[in-house]
Simulated scan of single mutants.
Amino acid sequence: MPHDPHAPATAADDARPLDERAYAAFDEGRLSEASTLFARLLQLQPETAHYHYMRGLAHKYLLDWPTSLRHNLNALTQGDPKEDEPDEAALWNAGIAATALGDWARARELWNRCGIQVPAGQGPIEADFGVASIRLNPWSDGETLFARRIDVVRARLLNVPLPESGYRYGDIVLHDGASTGERTYGNQRVPVLNALARLEPSQFRTYVVFVHCDGPEDIEALRAMSRPGIADVEDWSASIVNYCMRCSYGAAHAHREDDAEPAWDPERSLGIAAQGRSAVDQLLRDWAGNGAGRRIDSVSAPEHAPPPPQDGHVWWRGPDDDSGDPN
């Protein structure tokens, strides 16, 4: 039916330009502006479920968990009661926010509504949801490592992160539910999931250690040594790879291979997760004293805070994500 230019304006008419601006702001990563615009839309149409959902989604990426939870729950309440199934995206985002807030009863309820079986109880969910690759600070350098998922959206880090990440071995992190790619872990492919926050800090600090040794057997000897207060020794010289963007997200493509085996570099950069400096010093002294050509060059324990998200950066979407789905 043609629009009558003389008809009185409706809430839908008033909302149309705001709607376009709100979605454009979100799509460009201007989350604070998007939140403000969706709030204005909700003043005009307070029962519109998808505006509650979008405001909740913006606050999820702003890491504002109370607001995200409130609006995702509103989206579920305002949804069409004739629908057979609730909005799964709103359920997931409400579950993430409830988990971030430690609202375990609500989190359990939401995961059960998603069809995910979680252990009953009153406190944090403790289970085994397998291994995932976790991208730390996805709005920044995007270092990825492996983690054991102990919850639907909580995982314990299994590698020693670079100190610049602000994370530590053994941290329990909150991660998103949507995969942005895949990585190989052993003989299986595991999802790449964006870390959203550190929920529980580890007792282990990260020590940056530079050593000299003649061959890989020296590093294997160090990694095999067990000492009180030492959680893990990682040879960053071997394990850290600067991936191209497509490699980082696990997207299929090919690189030109170099057939030559890289020569052993005796100057090694290590990450050691330990409870204290004395444990690290004792480990390294024992290692250096039991093999020829082993030398300790330096030990330090720099501390960094995780970099905060920057407005205007759409960090939650993978390079091949052109579906237009904002979740």
Rank of each mutant, 00 (worst) to 15 (best):
G130V: 03
F146P: 07
Y61H: 10
P302C: 03
D13W: 05
R246Y: 11
G318Q: 08
D84C: 01
A231M: 00
N327R: 14
A25E: 03
Q203M: 08
T144K: 15
R256Y: 12
Y207Q: 03
D171I: 02
T99C: 03
R21F: 06
M1Y: 07
P119C: 11
P119I: 11
V153N: 15
A90R: 01
A274H: 02
G181M: 11
K60M: 11
G250Y: 02
Y207D: 04
H52F: 07
A75K: 10
A100C: 02
S165M: 09
R256Q: 13
A195F: 08
G181D: 12
G229K: 09
D286R: 10
A25W: 07
D171L: 03
A97Y: 00
N72L: 04
P81C: 13
D259W: 06
R205T: 05
G29P: 03
F204D: 05
A238T: 11
Y243R: 07
F204M: 10
G121C: 14
L158A: 06
L110E: 10
N242S: 06
P5T: 07
L76A: 13
L145K: 05
H50I: 15
M54N: 15
D259P: 10
A7N: 05
I219Y: 02
P201A: 10
H6V: 08
S237M: 04
G271M: 00
P266K: 11
P8Q: 08
